[in-house]
Design a protein around this nucleic acid. Structure first.
Lengths: 356, 356
DNA sequence: CTGAAAGCGCTTACAG
DNA sequence: CTGAAAGCGCTTACAG
């Protein structure tokens, strides 16, 4: 393993200025107004003047200053939206980001992303920073538990949509997965496979998604007349990395489950590692929420509840643009269904003597 | 599986206005200048006036308009940087993003991200959009093959750093992984394990990283006196998804390799799937460039060349902020080392009769 | 220390 | 159709 290497090469850096519209006007020999009309595709400019402007733009390498433009513009729009979520490097949020971007791009709108690290104060800082930069809308996967601070921004005309988790203490549009339904699918699947002791491994329970998935887990057990003792339920605190230890606790405890439902991609990865290290990958059933790369290549393959992350991003962006287009109706919540993908780990039977 | 559900609830949306500094001044009974001084932490404001301003800010819910602010500011800085890369949903770039954000955050600088989809024209559009919004700097993982279009932006004072791949036709700072070195590590490892027919599966060869990794592959084979016939080399065209088919071509062809080096995370995933589907996971050695979640849980585990993606992002951001801090020296290239992580797939021996 | 005035780069009524 | 002027929300010399 080598050390970092630095190589050097030469070139002076000019700290010049960007040409202004005024300079373009001077070069083209027209007024500032005319240049503005040409740049903004105004309908009524004589062909030869437009031509002169275009040449001057080309010559000077002029680029419109959008911040100055939106400052004076009647609609005040900046053609940008802010996206705030927990962690850029979580593949789930990356896919949400992708979905938002796809829709925004079609409208020539730029996406600014920032991660909150699950810290309420960082979420607020980011929302404020985006607001101070004049974004037209905000898409937030909430970390904080009180979003009333956003009421002012919305009153100021900033469109607002929540994704993955709804806002709290604010009534706003949201795009959510069917978290409880997905959890019910997972548990029902394990019950159908003969399991009666099914463990739950989740995030901090205050998190909306984690709470909903726990609710679905409990509902499904109740629907099948099975108990849900607290001894089968574990929460990772404070980070998903703890899932490795929590899995060991559960499996090495006095009354271990015969199957495990893990509520999130990073937790599933840790749990799978722990199960593997205990040599239990063929004797403990596992269903995880969120699909994961390589899940199909494990032996057995990893059974998952897949949510449509890019779809959530797209749905959130569509809700947002509806508002920017003038939609003034009551707030809407879009709930996307989940899919169970059976690959083997969720179909392992309980050991002969277990259960009942 | 249920249909998407929409639920409605009620609340009127106010499309009001954000309070201005002028209004704060009126409420506080001071001049605009004084408010500006208080907001920007100016040194010389009488305590009681500052107090009145603070109260007015609180009362009105005033938030500074940063676009107007940077428009008039002497340094013209906007405290934001733009990040352009191929795909938000590729975990490698997500980790780079994360690294950039960590460093930017420490300086109160916001990160705006956009993906180029590997399209040169989209990269240019994004760079232009970011420029029009007044970013202080641009960090680019290049898709295009000619970056001279950025010379103007840099002349206008925009700091510029490339990450993962260097810029072309422009002399600029860059943060790169030791691509060729990592590939040499991979091949040397396989050769040491007894392999003499080692296949290469890479991206489009025009891509810098892919080209470098191919070069490292060839150099390592040459260094060990082994031939590198074209029949052992495959490129995915146009997308990594083709890697599945290319792997089959290679393994089912007339003179199949006994080991495979895959040059990128998405390609490795496809190749591993193909190898698995052919039932060759225990008889074909595999080393992939880039680490992947769950790689350790495969059987055998996946041996990889790991690059420090977050480190690349951090290094790029540090180069950028050095420039913004006034560093005017020649351009610098930081090269980060790679690490080989042996997990099993790269240590499989060639079959008894194979090779020389 | 404070305020009135000019001006950042643009768009938009308003005359012509 | 075109241009001169006002003004978006702010910062920054410049007087006082």
């Amino acid at each position: 393993m080598t050390q970092p290497i630095e190589t050097f090469s030469e070139e002076a850096r000019g700290h010049g200025r960007r040409p202004t519209m005024k300079e373009v006007a001077a070069v083209a020999g027209v007024s500032l107004s005319t240049v503005s009309r040409v740049i903004n595709g105004g309908p009524t400019v004589r062909a030869d003047l437009a031509e002169r402007v275009d040449r001057a733009v080309e010559l000077l390498g002029y680029r419109q200053n959008l911040t100055a433009s939106s400052l004076r513009r009647a609609d005040g729009l900046s053609a940008s939206v802010g996206l705030i979520y927990e962690d850029v490097s979580n593949p789930f949020f990356a896919a949400v980001h992708r979905g938002v971007e796809e829709v925004a791009r079609e409208r020539g709108v730029l996406t600014f992303a920032g991660s909150s690290d699950e810290l309420p104060e960082r979420e607020r800082d980011l929302a404020q920073s985006f607001g101070a930069r004049g974004v037209d809308g905000l898409i937030i996967a909430p970390a904080s538990t009180d979003h009333s601070y956003l009421l002012r921004d919305r009153a100021a005309g900033v469109a607002l949509v929540f994704v993955d988790r709804p806002g709290r203490f604010i009534d706003a549009d949201a795009a959510l997965a069917d978290n409880a339904g997905g959890a019910r699918q997972a548990v029902a699947h394990l019950v159908a496979g003969g399991h009666r002791r099914i463990g739950f491994l989740g995030d901090r329970p205050e998190l909306y998604t984690s709470g909903e998935r726990l609710r679905g887990y409990r509902e499904a057990l109740a629907a099948h007349g099975l108990p849900a003792p607290e001894s089968l339920i574990r929460h990772t605190l404070p980070r998903a990395a703890d899932a490795y230890e929590r899995t060991r606790d559960l499996l090495l405890g006095p009354e271990p489950p015969t199957a495990l439902f893990t509520s999130q991609n990073l937790i599933t990865i840790q749990a799978a590692q722990a199960i593997h290290d205990l040599g239990r990958q063929r004797s403990l059933a596992l269903v995880g929420f969120d699909d994961i790369a390589l899940a199909g290549l494990l032996d057995p393959g990893l059974t998952v509840i897949s949510q449509n992350a890019a779809g959530l991003g797209r749905a959130a962006a569509e809700l947002l643009f509806d508002r920017l287009d003038g939609e003034v109706g009551p707030s809407r919540t879009v709930v996307l269904p989940t899919i169970l993908i059976a690959r083997g780990s969720g179909e392992l039977p309980p050991p002969p003597g277990a259960g009942a």
